[in-house]
Design a protein around this nucleic acid. Structure first.
Length: 432
DNA sequence: TCTGGGGTCCTAGGACCC
DNA sequence: TCTGGGGTCCTAGGACCC
């Protein structure tokens, strides 16, 4: 029995989220920047047309922004996360067999809908999501996930297809694959694209016809799976319940380089707090913690220092984890050096209900559990970070804090930031 | 002057064991 | 001169994804 997958992909997702609450942005060039307002990570079609590339540093496109009045936003993760949930909830109306692949993409199992016209069904999905959430999407339909991605990629490009393309029959398959550059295929990144092109494989069709042993040798078993998917054999089935995460990482680049140990200690404490919160939200504890420091990666001789430590008892207690992280940090810190980034990685994640006790344990676990529950409850009710450990520092001393200088409101997740609408004398509505 | 963050999987090589 | 072989585990690094 053959399968049918639909890939639903939100167009220019972060930009589209901003547009939902700010209609003035429609038809204008808009970009959303990464942390510290560093790089362009989302671009409207108008911004793409101006030649603004993915992940280009903001300072390199300053002239383009000014000349073309490009609207620039800092990342507003609270808003995008919430809008993503709305999109996914809408998709669940179509099938419970949904794999949320990323913040702006999902695969749907369309096996139950064989008798109806799949393009019409795709259009129905697209129209419903746009109507219910305001987010434009494109839909690719095909027999494997990789082919569905290709269909989606073509659907997005072509005006005629109106954002939906069904490649579930083989009729136009070769034609479609020939139109997709090899570097656009899911699983072919920069390195492989360069290598494949050097070997005369320039589009998805040529890749599908490539020699198995050649691909096996150069791209490993992952390459073989990719060939299979292009040929219509499923290498990647739908994953309905996501497998448990294997690691949790929190890391940030600093606005300015940091030299002082005290400031690094505060930064790392902040990252541990947020990591520990994530651990608790997922009901897991970490058995291993890694702390690292990095100097500027754009200067020559980038240095990387890290210390991994196995915790005596797997934990998600913020205070305990900060203690260990600080110990590790003191070990790798070198005085006088200027650091640009730090991070904390939690590994060996296990269920919180199956913690291996230790006779020498110095932490009162039941008490810690209650304390963490209270802390999470309060922060959830009153606002993130309202209650925090003193180790994070306060006010001026929080030099590690990420900058978001052009952030829009959290329209959907904060009472104080709701969209305001007023009517002027002529009866027109104004948005603030 | 100014360059993001958080994940996954695979592979090769070394340590170690029998 | 001549130095086993195979399995497992761990780690670092590289590729990819969004």
């Amino acid at each position: 029995m053959s399968s049918v997958f639909a890939l639903v992909d939100c167009n220019n997702f972060y930009v589209s989220c901003e547009r939902v609450f700010n209609p003035r942005l429609v038809d204008r060039p808009v970009i959303v920047l990464s942390n510290n307002d560093g790089c362009a990570v989302a671009r409207s079609n108008e911004a793409k047309a101006l030649g603004i590339k993915m992940a280009v540093p903001a300072f390199q496109i300053r002239d383009i922004i000014r000349k073309n009045k490009v609207q620039v936003f800092s990342s507003n993760y609270a808003l995008y996360g919430d809008m993503s949930q709305r999109v996914m909830q809408t998709l669940l109306q179509f099938t419970p067999n949904l794999e949320i692949y990323s913040i702006d993409e999902a695969f749907l199992d369309l096996n139950g809908c064989k008798r109806i016209n799949l393009t019409d069904y795709g259009r129905d999905i697209k129209n419903t999501v746009e109507k219910w959430t305001g987010i434009p999407v494109s839909v690719g339909i095909a027999g494997t996930k990789t082919l569905a991605k290709i269909a989606g990629c073509l659907a997005k490009k072509s005006n005629r297809a109106a954002g939906v393309l069904d490649l579930s029959s083989t009729k136009y398959m070769d034609q479609a694959l020939a139109a997709v550059a090899v570097g656009e295929v899911w699983g072919v990144g920069r390195q492989y694209a360069q290598f494949l092109k050097a070997n005369g494989i320039e589009n998805a069709l040529q890749l599908r016809e490539a020699d198995d042993s050649f691909i096996r040798k150069k791209m490993g078993v992952v390459g073989l799976r990719l060939l299979g998917e292009l040929r219509g054999e499923i290498s990647y089935p739908l994953e309905l319940s996501p497998p448990r995460r294997k690691s949790i990482m929190v890391s940030r680049t600093f606005k300015r380089p940091i030299v002082l140990l005290e400031e690094l200690l505060a930064a790392v404490a902040a990252y541990v707090s947020s990591g520990a919160e994530k651990l608790r939200r997922e009901n897991v504890v970490a058995g291993v913690m890694m702390v690292y420091l990095m100097t500027d990666r754009f200067k020559d001789e980038t240095c990387y220092y890290s210390r991994t430590l196995k915790l005596p008892v797997a934990s998600h207690d913020t205070a305990e984890l900060i203690r260990y992280a600080h110990k590790a940090l003191r070990e790798i810190y070198e005085k006088g050096r200027s650091y640009k980034k730090a991070g904390v990685l939690f590994n060996d994640l296990g269920s919180e209900t199956m913690v291996q006790a230790n006779f020498l344990d110095t932490v009162d676990r039941p008490r810690s559990k209650k304390l963490m529950q209270a802390l999470d409850l309060i922060n959830e009710a009153v606002g993130r970070g309202v209650i925090a450990y003193g180790a994070l520092g306060t006010g001026q001393r929080q030099s590690w804090k990420t900058a978001f200088n052009q952030r829009s409101r959290s329209y959907t997740t904060a009472w104080a930031e709701l969209l305001e609408v007023s009517c002027d004398e002529a009866g027109g509505a104004n948005l603030y």
